[in-house]
Structures are given as C-alpha cells and as structure tokens.
Design a protein around this nucleic acid. Structure first.
Length: 539
RNA sequence: GGCGCUAUCGUCUAGGGGUUAGGACGUGAGAUUCUCAAUCUUAAAACACGGGUUCGAUUCCCGUUAGCGCUACCA
C-alpha cells in the first residue's frame, strides 16, 4: 500500500531514471538490430526439478547451442511463500548434472551474472514498478478499484449465464482525475492492462498460427493491490528486457500467451517467437506428477540413471529426428540434429522401460571406472567396501565386479543386489529357497555336491577357472551328471542361485576377493563348496 | 460452462493425396548358454469416429468424441 502510493506520486524523472538504468545494462539486447538468438529457462525454486521442466531446459539449451545463441537462466521467485533457496542451488546441480550450462543467470560466472541482471525476479521489483508507471502514464493501463467481492460476483454470474468470464470494465471508464483522486485518497487498487478490441495473434513454432479473441483475455491484472506484479507481467517484462528472441516453454502457458502478447504490444516491443512444448503424461495419460513415482532429476540420479541416458530419452520424448530411425544421441549429436520445427505437438507418455533401455546402452558405453565410482557409495553403505579408496587392489577388483554385473542392470542402484552373493552368501537361506530346494533335493544333486566339494577341497589355494573346469569334468565323469543336473547344484552352492553370470568370470572374482582385506570377507570357492555340504535337506 | 491445444502399433515416433504405413521400446517365438542377462534372427501390433474436397484421403477442410491446459489480485 505504502509503496504503491509512493510510486503513484513518482515523477516522470523517476521513470526515466529507471529506463536509463535498464538501457545501460542491456542496451545491445534491446536494440532492434540484434540478431543473436537468446533463449531462457525460467523455473520457480519451489520444488525439485522434474523431468518435464528438465526437458524444457534441454530443448532451450539444445536450440541455443545449435544456433550459436545464448541460454539464460532466470529464477522466478516472486512467490516468496513457496520459494526456497535450497531448491535454487539444487536446481543448478541438477542442470549441470544433465550436462547443461548457461551464459547468463545466477552463478553464470560472469560479473553481475551477466549484462541483463539481476536474474532473480525478487531482485527486479524496481524495474517492474518503473514499467507500470510508464504504462499508467501513457494510459495503456489503468487503476482498478473493484473489490474481490465484486469480481467474484461477476464471475459467478458469467458462469451461470454460460458466458466467458470477462472483466466488466467498470474501472476502465474512470476518468484520470477520478482515478488519481481515489488513489491519493488511499483507496487500494490493482493495475489492469487496457486491451484493444482486436484479436491477439502469434505464430507458434510447434503449433502454427494461434488466435485468441480479445474478450477471452479481458483486461488482465498486471499488479495486485498489494503492489506485487503478477507472473504474466513480470515474465513478459523480463523476456523483453533480456532480449529473449524465442520463448520455449510448456504448453500450459499457451493460454497465457495472448495476455503476454498484449503486454508486448502495449510497450511497443517486438514479439519473440513462441514454441510451446507438449505435456509429459504418466501411464494413465494424466499429467506426470509425483503420483506416478519418481519424477525429479535428483531421484533419477540417485537410482543410477546416467545423465546422457536421461538427456537422450528426454530429447526423444516430444521430438523426432529426421528420418526417424535413429534412437541414440549424445548431447553433442543432439545439438547437431535438434530443430524446433521437428518438435511434436501432441502430449507424450513417459516410458520408464525405454529410459532403462537407453540407460543400459550408455552403461555399456561408459568407462568401467566411471561406473565403479558411481556405484561405490552403495557398496560402502552395505558395509561391503571400505569407505577409503586408498587400496588399489580393492578398487581394481571392484571395477571388475561392476563390469561383470553392470550390463545386466537397468539402473546402477540394482548393482548391490546383483553382486550380493559375493559378499553375503547365506547357505542355509539359499538352500531353503523353493526353487533351489527342489534342485538340491534330488539324489543326483547330492552326489554332485559331495564329489564337487571333495575335489575342490583337494585343490591348491587359489582356484583357477581352468582348475574349476577340470573339477567339473571330473565330477561329470564320476557322477554321470551333465548339463543342468551338474551345473545347477554347483551354482547354488557357490552363488546361492541357479542362474547368474558365467563361472569363468565368477570364479576369479570370488578368489581374488577372498584374499582382499574387505570389511565383509568374501568367502573363497573352497569355503563355499565346504559349506554346501551342510545344506543337505535331510541328513 | 467458456476459450484453447492435441489425436499413426500398448508406448515414443517417421511418413505423407496413390506406400507392403518405416524405426525404436515393450511383448511372443527361435538361435546361443549349465542358467539368467546380453546378443542375433523373427512374428504380432497403428492412421479415433463421421461428413466433405478429390479420380483417389490415413494425409487437406469441417464436425463429433476423447484427453489435456487455461479460465485467479497462483506461478
């Protein structure tokens, strides 16, 4: 209220001063001659970055990189209640993790974070106020003294009459003198934009020409009676002042766009190009949300989804490469292939299975040491690996463990479960498992195990794959067992399951692991074989 | 209710006035393996519906239906 009254008394000088401030900071962008493409990602720090917004950020970034333009970050924190600095810094981490960087914005590394700063809306309030003064001064906007009750009544009447909800325009007709008198008298007011009676049009890059009737927009509120500017207003002012040439955002903003177009018109600013991206849906075809499970970048990272897999998947979700037969793209490849014209307008269902397929693809492509580093913390947490990484032998061994299991995993967080038998094989529990029990109950299985254990025990300490193979052949000859009858009991004895990776790979890992100073000792092949004899179902 | 957006296999998509409507994920079958995974081969699987325009429409236009969004002094 107080601030508002002060601003009303604000002189033209003050407006000019604000303009000079703005122009000094951003002259080269607001000039008409500039050609350089500038896009922005403008999230609210009210929660974790989710895949929908991440895709929007990615498409903006891709477009900027493809065209040699600038990618800017702007924090929309005018909702003080819901905004949290914690989410803001998390946001930077998430974007960097995905592989995105930005020329301007908080933490851009530039002095002042860039020439068009500040990049937090909460720090730009003075700029908005100067622009509101200009609009009021030029008669492009007017004070609205209507109360919430009056507006509510109009709205319910409109709904009852099955008419569009439009503002009656009561305060539109107020004379300047009357308006000024009531404002000076201390009556509270909002500021509304005066919309000309003409259709509002724009050409959307993904949807084509779009037109809204002026009455559908009504005279939108620019500034609340508390003096706080509304979202559609500040977004437009910021986009214009920051020289944004292409507004790429979610299509939930499509219906907001005519309001913003009207604001551009009021200021006489050139319209940017708009590109409205389709919604990402859950399997039930409703907007993807927490209800559908993990949707934040942070959760995907924790699950062990590789950033390049997520970026690739998100790129494919709502965009089709020319030709339509290629599925895997690295970020650099995407910046070559991406065009806004090929963005699809229809909503897309998020498919975790395809994400997993891409993740497996990139896990196999990745350097084994990188995967080991990513997977390591989970193994420390289970107590299977030491927290320190100073033992080179352990690290080399662990890299082999990861290399063996990683190709068969959708997400890296499934690795500990896959490798569990190395560290924690409980012979009793394994034998009790129904499928295993059925195998072990047979006579042939018992004789195989008995013979196997005896032969393994007689071997010199580190059992080599070759020695193991010899033992298996000997057991085969002695017991007459072959194929599954031979391998399944042995596999259960050694790994606790009748399926798993090849013995050639498992044996060396077990033997090497058993000689390493690990927090949880790895049982050797011989120990495992000996224990298997204790599993006999009926003694 | 009003306004707007959208509509090709289950899913993501390519295509486009005349095509055997292509690819990928997933699914089924086979090969391989002691087994699982991986891999390879292979199969099934789509133009929402109704009207136009046209020699011809899945493609262009209109409508219907369905889904979604906006309809706030939220962002």
């Amino acid at each position: 209220m107080v601030a508002q009254n002060e601003s009303v008394k604000c002189s033209v000088d003050a407006i000019l001063a604000a303009w000079i401030h703005i122009r000094r900071g951003c002259y080269h962008q607001t000039g008409m001659s500039q050609q350089k493409i500038r896009v922005r990602f403008a999230p609210s720090p009210t929660g974790l970055l989710h895949v929908g917004n991440a895709r929007t950020a990615l498409y903006n970034w891709l477009f900027a990189r493809r065209t040699g333009g600038d990618f800017l970050l702007r924090i929309e924190d005018t909702d003080v209640e819901r905004s949290d600095a914690r989410f803001e810094s998390q946001l930077y981490d998430d974007l960097r993790w995905l592989g995105l960087d930005w020329e301007e914005g908080p933490h851009s590394g530039q002095p002042n974070d860039g020439p068009c700063g500040p990049y937090r809306q909460s720090e730009r309030l003075e700029i908005y106020r100067a622009h509101t003064e200009q609009l009021l001064h030029e008669g492009k906007a007017y004070r609205c003294f209507c109360t919430a009750e009056q507006l509510e009544a109009e709205r319910t009447a409109a709904i009852a009459a099955q008419q569009p909800q439009v503002y009656s325009g009561r305060c539109r007709a107020l004379s300047d003198a009357e308006s000024a008198r009531r404002a000076t008298a201390g009556e509270s007011f909002a500021v509304r934009l005066r919309i000309p009676d003409a259709p509002l049009r724009f050409d959307d890059i993904v949807r084509g020409p779009v037109e809204f009737a002026a009455e559908a927009v009504s005279d939108p509120i620019l500034v609340r009676s508390g003096g706080m500017p509304v979202y559609n207003y500040v977004v437009t002012v910021d986009d214009a002042l920051m020289g944004i040439t292409h507004v790429i955002r979610g299509d939930d903003h499509l219906s907001n766009t005519p309001k913003q177009v009207a604001i551009y018109h009021a200021f006489g600013w050139p319209l940017p190009r708009f590109a409205h991206l389709s919604t990402i849906l859950g399997p039930d075809r409703t907007r993807l949300s927490k209800r559908h499970g993990a949707t934040s970048l942070a959760s995907f990272r924790e699950m062990g989804i590789l950033p390049e897999a997520l970026a690739n998947y998100l790129a494919l979700l709502g965009w089709g490469a020319e030709g339509g037969t290629r599925e895997t793209f690295t970020l650099p490849e995407l910046t070559q292939a991406f065009t806004l014209e090929r963005v699809t307008p229809s909503p897309a269902v998020f498919d975790p299975q395809k994400l997993h397929w891409l993740n497996r693809h990139y896990i196999k492509q990745a350097a084994p040491e990188r995967i080991a580093t990513l997977a390591r913390p989970a193994f420390v947490q289970t107590g299977w690996l030491p927290a320190q990484t100073d033992n080179a032998a352990i690290e080399a061994w662990f890299a082999q463990v990861v290399a063996l299991f990683a190709p068969s995993v959708d997400q890296l967080d499934q690795l500990p479960q896959k490798a569990r038998f190395l560290f924690a094989l409980d012979a009793q529990t394994a034998a009790a498992e129904p499928e295993n029990a059925a195998v072990l109950a047979t006579e042939i299985a018992q004789s195989v195990l008995k013979d196997f254990a005896a032969r393994i025990a007689a071997l010199p300490a580190p059992v080599t794959p070759e020695a193991f193979k010899d033992v298996m052949n000997a057991v085969k000859a002695a017991t007459g067992a072959k194929g599954k009858d031979l391998f399944h009991p042995v596999r259960i004895a050694l790994t606790g399951a009748h399926s798993g990776p090849e013995f050639d790979k498992v044996i060396p890992l077990v033997e090497t692991g058993s000689r390493l100073p690990l927090p949880t000792p790895v049982a050797s092949v011989q120990t495992r074989a000996a224990q298997s004899l204790l599993q006999r179902p009926s003694a």
